[in-house]
Amino acid sequence: MTSPQDRPLIVVSGATGNIGRSLVGRLLADGAAVRALTRDPARAGLPAAAETVRADLTGTGDLAPLLAGADALFLNLAAGGDAAAVAVLDAAVRAGVRRVVLNSSMAVTGTPADDTHFIARLHAGLERAVRDSGLEWTVVRGGNYATNALAWAPSIRAAGVVREAHPGAQSVPVHEADLADVAAVALLDRTGTHLGRAYVVTGPERMTLAQQVAAIGRATGREIRVEQISEEEAAEAMVGRYLTKEAARELVRMFGATVDAPPFPVSDAVEQVTGRPARTFARWAEDHAADFT
């Protein structure tokens, strides 16, 4: 994958999101040119070395100019939803982009269960579209994002409390910088090692929600208590722009199912792809301590 000065141009959708922001910095550090797509360039706060471009991926305009001259695309469903992601993928094909790296979810299994699992449904169709696009591809199936813990920040700052229906729910939280590092390696891969691969990317250790709260307490030097609430209260708190009440209920029930039977193993994909171990949740809490104080 080359450009006129042997400097590939990578388009990053969702560039101001947690993964996208880390990815922009990593790609620039690795010597790539970056075109960062965002709704509001003036407020993006991205490095000056990046070409920050206004892009409403949910609109009706032609998206192909956003991909012009690009070697590769980082595609994130969170940047506008599934329809927008498919439109960006189609535009990449028309623009002659060679490679796409898709940010997906470890909930996708490639089995009929993908049609009934809430999170898998959101990503499996886009994975199929990527595979069918004719582009070189790599899929990064992230586990539970450590950044989900940022939802606790307002209540921690205000009252030193986290309210959850299932404090014993287990996951393997992954640092957004690790997801970005894996994506960067795949985007810049010159050997073909990562083409046609779907990597399940997790952190290095399984933790309960209560253990994550304790790690945030240690990182911030604060006493943080965990208060158990009903599933209905938890679902109500999760409802937002992209999450209906029924979808929130399904998520809360899924979390509850992990208390006694954690659904996913710990993956070594970060070390396999990048050559170094995955960052711990304790490291994530230290990196984000200011968000909770």
Results as ranks from 00 to 15, higher is better:
206 R>L: 08
211 Q>K: 13
78 A>C: 09
45 G>T: 07
277 P>G: 08
165 A>Q: 06
79 A>I: 08
82 D>G: 05
87 A>T: 04
273 V>M: 10
176 E>C: 09
238 M>P: 11
163 R>Q: 14
164 E>G: 08
86 V>T: 05
293 T>N: 04
146 A>R: 08
273 V>T: 08
259 V>E: 13
196 G>Y: 07
105 S>P: 07
24 V>W: 03
90 D>S: 13
26 R>S: 11
151 A>Q: 13
71 D>A: 05
180 A>E: 03
245 K>M: 14
282 A>M: 01
98 R>N: 00
254 M>H: 09
138 T>W: 03
48 A>W: 05
147 T>Y: 15
113 A>E: 05
103 N>V: 07
19 I>M: 00
253 R>W: 01
172 V>W: 05
146 A>D: 11
29 A>R: 03
231 E>C: 15
190 R>Y: 10
290 A>V: 02
104 S>A: 08
146 A>C: 11
263 P>G: 15
63 L>A: 00
86 V>W: 04
85 A>I: 02
112 P>I: 06
255 F>Q: 07
188 L>Q: 08
214 A>V: 15
228 Q>T: 14
223 E>S: 15
47 P>N: 06
179 L>W: 00
58 T>R: 06
130 V>I: 10
262 P>I: 02
177 A>N: 08
133 S>N: 10
235 A>N: 13
44 A>N: 12
287 D>P: 11
94 R>D: 05
166 H>D: 11
129 A>R: 09
4 P>I: 00
121 R>Q: 01
247 A>Y: 02
205 E>M: 14
291 D>P: 07
9 L>D: 00
19 I>P: 01
80 G>I: 02
64 A>Q: 02
130 V>M: 10
161 V>K: 02
173 P>I: 05
236 E>A: 14
177 A>P: 05
66 L>W: 06
196 G>V: 10
87 A>M: 04
140 V>C: 11
79 A>F: 05
55 A>K: 01
116 T>M: 05
268 D>A: 13
89 L>M: 07
60 T>K: 12
53 V>R: 01
290 A>W: 14
226 V>H: 06
92 A>K: 06
191 T>H: 14
13 S>I: 03
274 T>L: 07
95 A>G: 02
28 L>N: 04
153 A>T: 08
75 L>N: 02
194 H>T: 12
148 N>M: 12
68 A>Q: 05
190 R>C: 08
245 K>N: 14
136 E>Q: 14
47 P>T: 10
17 G>E: 01
21 R>Q: 10
57 L>W: 08
29 A>N: 06
43 R>C: 07
151 A>P: 15
139 V>T: 12
145 Y>I: 09
272 Q>E: 13
268 D>S: 12
242 Y>T: 14
240 G>Q: 10
181 D>E: 08
273 V>W: 03
77 L>Y: 04
88 V>K: 01
83 A>L: 03
213 V>C: 07
236 E>D: 15
76 N>S: 13
240 G>T: 01
243 L>R: 11
199 Y>I: 13
137 W>H: 06
76 N>W: 02
17 G>K: 01
14 G>N: 01
229 I>Y: 10
185 V>L: 12
289 A>W: 01
1 M>V: 00
152 W>H: 12
108 V>N: 03
230 S>F: 10
123 H>Y: 09
101 V>A: 01
196 G>R: 05
27 L>C: 04
166 H>M: 15
103 N>D: 04
7 R>M: 00
103 N>G: 05
